[in-house]
Amino acid sequence: MDPLAENLQNVAAAHSLPPTQPGSGSEQDSHTFFQSLKIDWSELEQLCGLETNDLWVGSLWAGAYRLGVLRRSPLSLIVTELLVIALAGMVSLPLGLLLVRNSASTDPEAARAAIPFVMTVAIGMSALLLMRYRRMTQNRKRWRSLLGILDEVDSYHDSLKALELLDQLQEIHPPGPISSFRPGIEFEEVQAAPSMLEPATFEALALTRDSLVTGLLADRLLRQQQSQIGGRARYIDLLEHLDHNLATLTAFEASQQVTEEAQLLQDALKISLAVRRSITR
């Protein structure tokens, strides 16, 4: 087996999650379980081979901005971009300084020297920023499927949060009508579910996590080593694994009643489908 495929197999093994449920007991157990289902930033970095955060992938200078970042956190994006522009100006400062120093002997008036100085700095700054934007646009095209999967990771984390909240509510409230809340859906009255979430829900969450991990690994393989025979075989393995997860999730979904958890199962299925589509696009 080639080194990358072997490395990816090790990473996959390290990130697979035993499909266990929280113990019937404490709130702490349940919280720990939900925490273990999350895919944190360092884990994502290991899986996709690139640094990621809520704003960008790769790096701020030669990476790509995440999809929908302007809609999600416009202020953060604007502040970061303004600071990057200021930093580009700062790096171009020596160019302007060189010009002012050389012209100082012939032009002692500082006010007159300011115009070529500002122009030189502006040219240097524009060149740096143009190179950066070009690189970022290229990366955005190249990493389209990765950016799509990362968006699904966000949706998965939203579902996890909603389920954790639902689980906490079910522990606090006795059976009867309660208020529940899901992201993107207004408060609504639902029948209280049993005190514990359905086992199928936890299994679906573990499967969704597994699909995301598989999708990220397949995408990495596709980016780094698509043409090699070992890499290609491993890629097909990962696709088959994804298909298996999808089949199981579809079976879970079909067996569920119309409940809050069934809706979340549907979300899990949608995420897995989106991951499958992203890597075969």
């Binding site: 970095e45 640094e51 790769g58 701020l60 200078w61 990057v84």
Partner: peptide, 15 residues
């Protein structure tokens, strides 16, 4: 670990 993020964050905040 997460060096690019640290570089970006330290550079921008110190600026």
């Amino acid at each position: 670990k997460q060096l690019n993020q640290k570089i970006a964050s330290l550079l921008l905040s110190s600026f």
